[in-house]
Amino acid sequence: MHSNIIIIPMMVALLIPFYEAYRDDNVWQKLLAFSSIACKTALITLVASVLRDDWMIGVVGVLILSVGNAGLMLLAHIVKRVNEA
């Protein structure tokens, strides 16, 4: 019951960057939306784990947070190179 009150608004907030990524054709705006999605999903994982008292999921959330954005950074550099070429 309590967990739904917290999780559902977070899911709704997650829908906004999804909509933006679907709608905008500019690659940087898409990348920005994806970075937002990455952060929000990891946080939802973490919150769900604490509310359900299942810390195994929480460890996954912390791992996603600590290594997750490296791929997006590489992608940004690749897109920059492609734009320059």
Partner: peptide, 21 residues
């Protein structure tokens, strides 16, 4: 650890996105 990595990764990702774009 989650707070540290969140702050550092997201901040630096913001910088990288601003720089690259």
């Amino acid at each position: 650890l989650a707070i540290f990595s969140l702050a550092i990764w997201n901040t630096i990702l913001g910088y990288v996105l601003a720089y690259c774009s």
